[in-house]
């Protein structure tokens, strides 16, 4: 394995692991708690949580996807095919988060803390379902890039 490929692999696996672990953590812990909160409490907690997660998780996702692209570029055969198959769900997460989740996030973000947006119950439900799908995609992407490394 060349130095450049080794570096791309380390960055891809580390960022990918942290991103997937973070997304799984949200699905496992925050979503479970948010389902049980009154809408007023949910609006406060969700807005505060966004402030922390929003820069961190997309950055890890983009770093992982870029490193996976560099990995695919430098490999061939099964390793390259699996890496490309892993990049696709990552790209899907990125685009769908911008198109589907961001408008919901903005409904909470642009209001003062404690103000519940209209139709908040539906927004909470849609966001929860979207995040569970995003989690399944992240897990499959991470499993694919980890398997790709074993063929490199």
């Amino acid at each position: 394995m060349s130095g450049a490929l080794r570096l791309a692999t380390i960055v891809m696996l580390t960022a990918g692991g942290l991103f997937t672990g973070g997304v799984v953590w949200y699905a496992w812990e925050r979503i479970w708690i948010w389902r049980r909160l009154a809408l007023e409490d949910y609006a406060v907690d969700f807005r505060r949580s966004l402030r922390k997660a929003d820069p961190a998780l997309p950055i890890l996702l983009v770093i992982c996807a870029c490193a996976a692209t560099a990995f695919a570029w430098q490999t061939s055969g099964t390793a390259r095919m699996l890496a490309i198959a892993g990049i696709l769900p990552l790209a899907t997460i990125l685009v769908s988060s911008i198109v589907l989740a961001e408008p919901i996030n903005n409904q909470f973000r642009r209001r003062p803390e404690g103000v519940v947006p209209p139709d908040a119950e539906r927004l909470r439900r849609v966001w929860r379902r979207f995040h569970l799908v995003r989690t399944a995609l992240a897990l499959s992407a991470f499993a694919l890039i980890v398997t790709a490394v074993s063929y490199a």
Partner: peptide
Amino acid sequence: AIPMLIAGGLFAGGVLMIAWERIPA
């Protein structure tokens, strides 16, 4: 290698999110 990387990544990602998102709250 595969269980080491997957479980290690999920574990470290989880503790990182607690440190990054929960601890300030």
